[in-house]
Design a protein around this nucleic acid. Sequence first.
DNA 1: GCGATTTTTTGACATATATCAAAAAAATCA
DNA 2: TGATTTTTTTGATATATGTCAAAAAATCGC
Lengths: 191, 191
Amino acid sequence: MYEQLQGYLNSFVKLDEDAALEIERKFVKRNFRKGSFLAVEGEVTKEAHFLIKGCCRFYHVKNEKAVTHWFSFENSFVTSLRSFTTQTPSVEYIQAIENCTVLSLKYDELNSLYAKYQQWERLGRLIMEDFSRQMLDRLTALQTLTAKQRYIMLLQSEPRIIQRIPLNHVSSYLSISGETLSRVRSEIRIL
Amino acid sequence: MYEQLQGYLNSFVKLDEDAALEIERKFVKRNFRKGSFLAVEGEVTKEAHFLIKGCCRFYHVKNEKAVTHWFSFENSFVTSLRSFTTQTPSVEYIQAIENCTVLSLKYDELNSLYAKYQQWERLGRLIMEDFSRQMLDRLTALQTLTAKQRYIMLLQSEPRIIQRIPLNHVSSYLSISGETLSRVRSEIRIL
DNA sequence: GCGATTTTTTGACATATATCAAAAAAATCA
DNA sequence: TGATTTTTTTGATATATGTCAAAAAATCGC
């Protein structure tokens, strides 16, 4: 369990022993039942969670409708970024799509790691750089591809999303109505 | 000139004297003529530029068409993020929309700052966090607003873009055809 | 300053995608 | 397992926005 997190972190920075020891000291194991929330609109998100098992859906409510904007799977951090990094009320919800096991880290604990270890600071920077690149790709896809192309691209680049997430959430994520996505899928089936 | 950069960096981290001294040592002043390129598709971006004066347009070419995905103005860093951070060929162009004055920092120099000063590492992290939050906002706007709403929102949140950037670039940035944006504007004029 | 580009506007028409409604299928759970 | 809820599919129709074309306006280069 901790090895899994360790492996993830190591892909960014090879942690020295003292810095690595903090992993077991600061992260605590937790479970979230399918359907439960890791972040709620209006509440300050006090923890970041490393997803050991399961997957989550990020969404916000706009005109009484849920708009999904992200999914997270095993081996990634889950938190309401703006809320957590600025300690302000969240504008989004994060919901467990499957039963989830996570390793949770409190905001203050993370900051003490940042303060104490240059390597943790670097880890934070590299993870944010990585996240930014992912966001840029997603933006490009939304900006340049048709509904069908976006679905096909997702099928290729993130098959887990299509395999494990209900279609209505996927359609929202792709900014396509459920009906249109259903039609797109049947077209592709025929091909 | 250096004070301007210093002020920007200070808004993220109050640099100690030794770390602050590096600013004048590592950043070099350069000018880019209107129309010239700060990054080109296919070339590895070797520098990040802090924009002292002027503005830039980020775009990539898709089906022989330019798709604008970002603008930068005074007091922000300009670089092809993926290319610079991973030192791989850029997929995008960055073009000066006005004559620009920048302070440029080489990739290797930045990394030596990261290695030597925990404060610079933190600076990098905080700037990336800030960037990520901006990207998230942009994604939300593209996902939830109509063409007209996106334009109005831009008018309010980033009037500089509308004041200083040719309309065809703005429309591309908003994922609206030039014709539709023109119509949206005339509608708003009347109101 | 003036001709030549480039950008913006306007109009007619095309189309991708949304919406509404209802049936079919799948998932949930008591 | 069967009943109930949720999700997905299918059909008919509506609409926002794109495309093509040409005029009007603005900008650029010499």
